[in-house]
Amino acid sequence: ETYFAHPYASWQRGLNENTNGLLRQFIPKGTDLTAVTNDELRKYQGALNSRPRKCLGFRQPSVVFVELKQAA
């Protein structure tokens, strides 16, 4: 089954909106995204993936990913 959120219904896209808020710590609203380099994006990605998450039992997403990858 596929689910599509309605346009302008941010409450239907909780994870997406939360991630956008986290990215705003690094890239302020209104920033020209063409000026953001791939190296900067990798740095932001690493910072977000090493941030502990409550939904993962306060473990880091990068650690959980490695554990699941090894189990597969």
Results as ranks from 00 to 15, higher is better:
1 E>W: 09
1 E>A: 15
1 E>G: 14
3 Y>S: 12
4 F>S: 12
4 F>E: 12
6 H>F: 05
6 H>K: 06
7 P>G: 09
11 W>I: 02
13 R>I: 03
13 R>G: 02
16 N>S: 13
17 E>K: 15
19 T>Y: 13
19 T>A: 09
20 N>P: 09
20 N>V: 13
22 L>W: 11
24 R>P: 06
25 Q>W: 11
25 Q>V: 03
25 Q>Y: 08
25 Q>H: 05
26 F>L: 06
26 F>Q: 05
26 F>V: 05
26 F>C: 10
29 K>V: 07
30 G>Y: 00
31 T>D: 00
31 T>V: 00
32 D>I: 06
32 D>M: 07
33 L>C: 10
34 T>I: 00
35 A>V: 03
36 V>D: 10
37 T>C: 07
37 T>I: 10
40 E>I: 14
40 E>M: 14
42 R>F: 14
46 G>W: 10
47 A>H: 11
47 A>C: 04
47 A>D: 09
48 L>F: 05
49 N>W: 07
50 S>I: 00
50 S>W: 05
52 P>T: 07
54 K>M: 06
57 G>C: 07
58 F>S: 10
59 R>E: 13
62 S>N: 13
65 F>D: 02
66 V>T: 12
66 V>P: 00
67 E>M: 08
68 L>P: 01
69 K>T: 04
70 Q>F: 02
72 A>L: 07
